[in-house]
Each structure stands twice: as C-alpha cells, then as structure tokens.
C-alpha cells in the first residue's frame, strides 16, 4: 500500500510521470488547497511519511503527554478541512476531501476517523475568508496545480 502511495507521490514530483503509472481513465486525486502558505513539512516528505509522523506523534502524545502542534492530527484538520457554501465544515474523510481524496485513489483504508474527529470542534464557526481562499471544488485542476506547485 505504501509503495503505491509513494508511487503516486513520485508521479507528482516527476511532473509528467503519472501517465505512465496510472491508467488514463482514473482521475488523479486533486485534494483541496489547505489554509496557510505551506505545510509543516515539505510536501513530498508529507505525502510519503505523514503516517509515520502521525504514528510517532500519537505515542508521544498519549503516553508522554507531549502536545507539540507540528505533527498533531488536530492541527492537520485545522488547516485542511474545507467549509461548504453555508460555512459548515465538511468532514475531512468525505469524498473528495483532503484525506479521502488521495486515500480513495491509492486504495488505502484510513481508520483514524473511526475515533478521531473529522472536523474542528465548532462546526458552526465560519472561516469565510479561508473558505473563499481555498477552492471548494475538489476536482478543480487549479487545486492540483497549487498542490504540486507547493513543493519546494
């Protein structure tokens, strides 16, 4: 599973490589743009290793009480959840949303969200500015361009 995900990441990095590694009829994942300028780690590192970061942080937090924000799942949600037209948060594991978009493509099941919240606490609170900034159409090609363009 990881190898496939890495392959997807590699395809992004190589720019034109995806036509080789994926059948043409499967649309590439186009996760929505996050809030803020950049992720806590370089994008390609994140694509390949986000699960390792989360796993490490999970044990540090649960057993040793270390609550740094850098690799915290709650902080992932803060930046990566989108809001709908009415300003309500969309669960991050909903189709087309940040986590689910890539995971559906790579066929990797997430079980984080059987327990963990899928959106920040107050659904009612509206971040209209950031919602407007981040395109809400997940399949929009410009998103992909922005994601790819984000890499250092």
């Amino acid at each position: 599973m990881r190898r496939r995900l890495a392959a997807v990441g590699l395809a992004f990095i190589m720019g034109a490589g995806w036509s080789i590694s994926t059948p043409a009829d499967i649309p590439l994942p186009a996760p929505p743009k996050a809030k803020g300028d950049r992720c806590v780690e370089p994008t390609d590192l994140m694509r390949r290793n986000h699960m390792e970061f989360l796993l490490h942080q999970r044990d540090e937090t649960v057993h040793r009480g270390i609550r740094t924000k850098k690799h915290s799942l709650v902080e992932c949600l803060t930046c990566h959840t989108q809001t709908d037209a009415a300003g309500h948060y969309i669960p991050i594991n909903a189709p087309g949303q940040f986590c689910q978009d890539c995971h559906a493509y790579s066929g990797v099941k997430m079980d984080c969200f059987e327990c963990h919240a899928t959106k920040p606490r107050n659904s009612a609170s509206v971040h209209s500015k950031s919602a407007a900034m981040s395109g809400t159409s997940p399949a929009h090609l410009s998103n992909l361009a922005r994601v790819v363009g984000n890499r250092p």
């Binding site: 709650v74 949600l77 059987e114 327990c115 963990h116 919240a117 606490r121």
Partner: peptide, 16 residues
Amino acid sequence: EDLTDQVPESPRGKGT
C-alpha cells in the same frame, strides 16, 4: 456502537 461527531480533543470509537 459506531460514533460520529467526536470532539477533536477526545477521540472515541466503537469497540474500545
């Protein structure tokens, strides 16, 4: 049972 709408600081899930 399955839970939805957990709060971010208190993860909870079926079977634990």
